Amino acid sequence: MLGSADAVAFLPSTDLDRSRSFFTGTLGLPLLEQTPFACVVRAGTTMLRITLVESLRPQPFTVLGWDVPDLRGTVAALAAAGVPPLRYDGLGQDSDGVWTTPGGDEIAWFADPDGNTLSLTRFAPPVR
């Protein structure tokens, strides 16, 4: 039924101006619309609606992520822009904050200004 429909992603924010600055300025996502209720950006082919909420308790898991071809370059660019990788005790992340899965995928996490956990993944080539 929805197999060919485009998905729309949602993130909560307590400050839309701050979120707009982060998502458009720091992350480089194009702005589609700003209203008093939401800041809407484009993330690849996905519409991302950053929705104003009165209060927020960030979840302890990833709520949005990107598949990136140059994970380490993206992590370095984010760190240079003041967005450090998140580190998790016991996960075995390397000095760049990257965790390599048993299957060879590389993953790094970072937070938006509201504390939402976001991720970057470089998927390993499929084994043939």
Rank of each mutant, 00 (worst) to 15 (best):
L86S: 03
R122I: 02
L56Y: 06
T14W: 02
V75D: 02
A76M: 00
A76Q: 11
V63I: 14
P84L: 07
G115N: 06
A7H: 14
L86R: 06
D114S: 05
D67H: 15
W66I: 04
M1C: 08
D6W: 04
G97R: 04
W99Y: 15
Q34C: 05
L16M: 07
D112S: 00
L2T: 14
G73M: 11
V83E: 03
I107F: 12
T24D: 08
W109R: 09
S119Q: 02
V98R: 08
G90F: 09
F123E: 09
F123M: 11
P36D: 13
W66L: 13
L91C: 04
R49H: 06
L56P: 01
L11R: 00
G3A: 13
A77S: 14
S119C: 08
P126A: 13
L78R: 08
E33N: 13
I50L: 04
P12S: 03
V83F: 00
C39S: 12
T121C: 12
D6Q: 14
G3W: 06
R49S: 13
F61T: 07
A76C: 01
G92M: 01
S119R: 04
S119V: 05
G115I: 01
D96N: 14
V41N: 02
S19T: 04
D105T: 11
P102C: 03
G115R: 04
Y88M: 09
A7Q: 15
A111Q: 15
S13Y: 03
D70C: 02
R128I: 01
R128P: 01
L71G: 07
M1W: 06
A81M: 03
I107M: 11
F37Y: 10
R72M: 02
W99V: 11
E106C: 06
P60D: 13
S55R: 11
T14A: 03
T24P: 00
T46F: 05
F22T: 02
Q93W: 04
R18F: 05
P36C: 08
P69H: 11
G65Q: 08
D89T: 02
P69C: 09
C39L: 05
L48V: 15
D6V: 11
L2D: 10
T100P: 04
E33Y: 08
P85C: 06
L32A: 10
T117A: 03
D70I: 07
G25K: 00
L71C: 09
L32W: 07
L16S: 10
D89P: 05
V98T: 04
L86W: 02
R42Y: 07
P30C: 12
Q59R: 12
Q93E: 13
A77H: 10
A111L: 05
L29F: 10
T74Y: 05
T62A: 12
V98I: 15
A76F: 03
G103Y: 15
L78I: 09
L11K: 00
D70W: 01
L2F: 14
S95T: 12
R122M: 10
T74R: 10
A108W: 04
F123G: 04
V63D: 00
E54T: 15
E33H: 06
A5D: 15
D112H: 02
L91Q: 12
D105N: 15
G92F: 03
Q93I: 00
A81D: 07
R20F: 00
P36E: 08
L91Y: 14
A43R: 00
G3S: 13
P125H: 09
P12C: 00
G92I: 03
W66V: 01
P58T: 09
D17I: 05
A81S: 01
S95A: 15
G25H: 02
G73A: 08
V75T: 03
P60Y: 12
D94A: 00
F123I: 09
